[in-house]
C-alpha cells in the first residue's frame, strides 16, 4: 500500500465541542487526516442479490476513520465513469477498512468485479462523521437498506465509550434476504429489531414506522438517534425526532465531484444555505436540513 501524502487537516469535526467524547488531545490524534492510497483488495464478497462487501488494506485511512466518514474510490481506470464514487466506511480495524455496497450502476458494477490483490485508488477518510455523545441515556440506530453501512461504527463507538446506555438497533429492508449487518450488531451485544416491507421477517412495514412505534413508549428526554437510508425514510425519522426533541443525526448522499470541498458540486439545501455533503456532511444534524427541497 502506497501513501501518496497525508498531512494534518484541521477539519471542523465538532460543531458542538462540548459534546466531544474524547479529550481534545486524543481527538486531534484520530481526526483530521486525509490520505490518497492504493488500497489492496483483500476480498470482495457477494452478500445478497444486490449487495457486496469489499475489504481493503488501507492502514492510514483505517486508523484515521471515524464513524460516518467516507472513502472516495476510483472504481476503474477509464473515463466512464469518470468520477470517483463515495462509500461510507463500514468498519475499520487493524489496517483494513470494509465497505458495504449495492450495485446500482457503472461504478458499483466495476467495483463488484474487483478481485483479491487488485488495487483501488482511494481517498479518505473524508467528511464529517457522527457525533457520538455518551451522555444520552437512550440511543436509536436506524438503518434502511444499504444505509446500515455507516451505522456499525456508530454502534461500535457507543459500546466502546458508552456508559451502559440503552441502545436499540432498527434495521429495515425490502425482504428477509436483503437485511444487512444484523449479526455484526448482535456481536456487539446489541439487540436488533428488523422491519421488512414484505413482512418476510420481523415487523411488516417500513423501518421508519417501526421507529415510530418504538418511540411511543419512550419516556426519556435524553435520546439520540443516528440514521442512514433512503431520503424518504430519513425525513420521517427526522420529523419524528424533532417532534419529540431528540438529538438526531442523519447521513445524506449527493452526486459528488472532488469529495474534498473544492468543487461545490455536492450541495444540498440546509437552513443556513447550501451545504456540501462532502465537507459539512455527509452526517448532518437533522434540524439543519431543508427536507422539502433538498435538491437530490
Amino acid at each position: 500500500m502506497e501513501a501518496e501524502r497525508g498531512l494534518v487537516r484541521k477539519r471542523n469535526a465538532n460543531t458542538h465541542p462540548k459534546r466531544c467524547v474524547r479529550p481534545a488531545q486524543q481527538v486531534s490524534e484520530r481526526i483530521g487526516y486525509m490520505y490518497q492510497v492504493k488500497a489492496k483488495v483483500l476480498s470482495n464478497e457477494k452478500l445478497s442479490e444486490a449487495h457486496y462487501r469489499i475489504k481493503l488494506e488501507a492502514s492510514q485511512i483505517a486508523k484515521a476513520a471515524r464513524a460516518g466518514q467516507f472513502v472516495h474510490i476510483r472504481c476503474g481506470p477509464g473515463y466512464d465513469p469518470l468520477l470517483r464514487r463515495p462509500f461510507s466506511i463500514h468498519k475499520s480495524r487493524q489496517g483494513r477498512i470494509d465497505v458495504l455496497y449495492q450495485v446500482v450502476g457503472k461504478g458499483t458494477g466495476l467495483l463488484s468485479q474487483k478481485r483479491r490483490g487488485d488495487q483501488l485508488d482511494s481517498l479518505g477518510p473524508l467528511g464529517k462523521g457522527f457525533e457520538i455523545e455518551p451522555a444520552f441515556k437512550k440511543i436509536f440506530i436506524v438503518g434502511g437498506g444499504i444505509g446500515v453501512a455507516p451505522l456499525y461504527m456508530v454502534a461500535q463507538e457507543i459500546t466502546r465509550v458508552g456508559q451502559g446506555q440503552d441502545v436499540t438497533v432498527l434495521l429495515g429492508a425490502k425482504n428477509k434476504e436483503l437485511i444487512l449487518g444484523k449479526d455484526e450488531f448482535e456481536r456487539l451485544g446489541l439487540e436488533v429489531t428488523i422491519a421488512t416491507e414484505d413482512g418476510s421477517t420481523g415487523y411488516r412495514g417500513l423501518v421508519s414506522n417501526l421507529f415510530q412505534e418504538f418511540i411511543l413508549s419512550q419516556t426519556s428526554l435524553s435520546v439520540a438517534v443516528y440514521s442512514c437510508g433512503p431520503v424518504s425514510m430519513l425525513r420521517k425519522i427526522a420529523e419524528l425526532s424533532r417532534h419529540r426533541g431528540f438529538f438526531c443525526q442523519v447521513s445524506l448522499e449527493q452526486k459528488m465531484g472532488c469529495g474534498l470541498g473544492a468543487c461545490l458540486g455536492c450541495v444540498i439545501r440546509g437552513r443556513s444555505g447550501y451545504l456540501r455533503v462532502c465537507k459539512e456532511g455527509p452526517v448532518f444534524d437533522a434540524k439543519e436540513i431543508l427536507w422539502d427541497n433538498l435538491g437530490l
Binding site: 473515463y79 469518470l82 435538491g295
Partner: peptide, 23 residues
C-alpha cells in the same frame, strides 16, 4: 453568490456537466 440549485453535477461519457453557478 449562493450558486445554482442542486443537483449540480452529472456525468456523461468521459465528461462532467456542472452548474455550480459561480457560488
Amino acid at each position: 453568490r449562493e450558486g445554482n440549485p442542486p443537483p449540480r453535477l452529472a456525468e456523461t461519457p468521459a465528461g462532467l456537466l456542472n452548474s455550480i453557478g459561480l457560488e
